[in-house]
Nucleic acid binder design. Structure first.
Lengths: 220, 220
DNA sequence: GTCTATAATCAGATAGAC
DNA sequence: GTCTATCTGATTATAGAC
């Protein structure tokens, strides 16, 4: 034992890497336990089921980053003047703090989040929104104050557009960074991409309201 | 037979719906063939394997929409004056033309595309980029002309941010449209969301260049 | 082309010895 | 807590009759 992590932690560490890289359903418990060098049965002993392991992996990041997010948002709420760039800038640090959980934690966290939303593992979406919905509503309020010309429902849409930008980019981070290096000789790490993304998000969220023709009836 | 689609088409139709809704690996051939009301073995007879079925499903949309995209881009390239809103507006119609392939085709197409990129089914990424990479490079050129203050490498990043916005939003379309209806009493269909997304994308792509500190060595 | 039947594999979960 | 061995069920794919 001595200089070795507990079995539980070895499982969590191996699982989060594999889940982020390959997705939840593409990652078998057998693969996890072999990478973690622990016994297959230990997953069920420590976590009960694969579903609960997935939630435990995500919880480790959510419990760490969401409070940091809320704090940052609370600080922003007190600020008298507020631009959208300020808002998104302020969220980088809480996101980067996921690197304290683990090396490359920020990328892993955002990849897991994206996979959680997209693999319609119903239980995950429920798990995230019921435990951490406050972050989104708090963010909505701050954004609304920084961009008062954007209606609340439009803020709702644009924050989800923003989430899509973030998680998709992080899911493809390795491939995209490779192309940027090969085709444009530009080096990037997770933080540089996050900062590269900020002006894009800020400008997008602050864009003029769309002019939509009235909807025809029915259709979905 | 008479008034009944061929077995091959019945499989494609059932498969694309299920793949778009649930993802590729979460959709078994058994589920597909039962929804399509055809025999399980017919998938392998007509397509050879699940992998090839996935590619055939995507190909039907790519072969239809990508040429339309290229035409729209060619028209744009000839235009003397060009704004980014023009560019993205012009792409809505080719995207909506996927509805000619099938009811709700646009949403299905974008969901499939997103899942193809995110479920690291390596073969799919390769399949898409080798067959239709020209669309991206053509789009890059047009965008670069409409927003000359954005460097080519930044255009590269921002178009991928844009792809993320699109596919993530469409993957979550039903859930998001539900929330917009319940919480904000706002009805939406696929086209209205696409048009809602345009100002966001246009503003994001046109945003001022990021000011980045020089990168430290190493790190990924 | 379509069907039944089945092969071959792999998944998550568990019983029970230690 | 950890291990081996195994259960149970699902999956893709195929052989072979019709």
């Amino acid at each position: 034992m001595a200089n070795r992590l507990t079995t539980k932690d070895r499982i969590l560490n191996a699982a989060e890497r594999l889940f982020a890289e390959r997705g939840f359903s593409e990652t078998s418990l057998r693969l996890i336990t072999s990478k973690a060098e622990v016994n297959l049965a230990s997953v069920n002993y420590h976590f009960g089921s694969k579903k609960e392991l997935i939630q435990a992996v995500l919880a480790r990041y959510l419990d760490h980053s969401m409070p940091a997010m809320l704090q940052a948002l609370a600080r922003l709420a007190k600020q008298p003047q507020l631009t959208l760039e300020d808002v998104f800038e302020a969220l980088v640090e809480p996101l980067m703090s996921a690197n304290e959980v683990r090396q490359n934690g920020t990328a892993i966290f955002l990849q897991l989040l994206g996979r959680g939303y997209i693999e319609s593992q119903g239980h995950l979406r429920w798990f995230v929104t019921t435990n951490h919905g406050e972050v989104l509503s708090s963010l909505s309020r701050v954004v609304n104050r920084a961009a008062p010309h954007v209606s609340p429902v439009e803020v709702f849409w644009r924050l989800h557009f923003t989430l899509g930008t973030l998680v998709f980019t992080m899911s493809s981070f390795d491939a995209l960074a490779d192309i940027a290096k090969v085709d444009y000789d530009q080096s990037n790490n997770v933080e540089s991409v996050l900062r590269r993304i900020i002006p894009y998000l800020a400008a997008g969220v602050a864009a003029p309201m769309p002019q939509l023709a009235p909807l025809p009836v029915v259709e979905s």
